[in-house]
Simulated assay, not measured.
Amino acid sequence: MKVYIEERCKEIAKYIIKTRCTCKDCARKFGISETTVHQDMRKRLPKIDNKLYLQVSNILDLNKAEAFLRGGLATKEKYEINKI
Rank of each mutant, 00 (worst) to 15 (best):
K29R: 15
N82C: 06
K10D: 00
K18D: 14
G71A: 05
T75E: 14
K64R: 15
L52G: 03
A67D: 10
R8H: 07
R44W: 07
L45E: 04
C23A: 15
G31T: 06
R20I: 00
L45R: 03
I59M: 02
V37H: 02
K18A: 11
K43A: 10
R8C: 01
A65I: 07
T75Q: 11
A13T: 02
A67G: 02
H38P: 00
D40F: 00
E11Y: 03
L60Q: 08
K10L: 13
L45P: 00
T19V: 05
E34W: 01
E11D: 10
H38R: 15
M41N: 06
I84E: 11
N58D: 14
L45Q: 01
E7C: 05
F30T: 04
Y53M: 03
V3Y: 09
A65M: 11
T35L: 08
G71K: 15
T22M: 05
Y79Q: 12
T75M: 12
K47F: 07
Q55L: 07
T75H: 11
L52M: 14
V3F: 06
G31P: 05
K47A: 13
I16F: 05
E80L: 14
L45S: 02
Q55M: 10
D25C: 09
A67S: 15
M41C: 10
V37W: 00
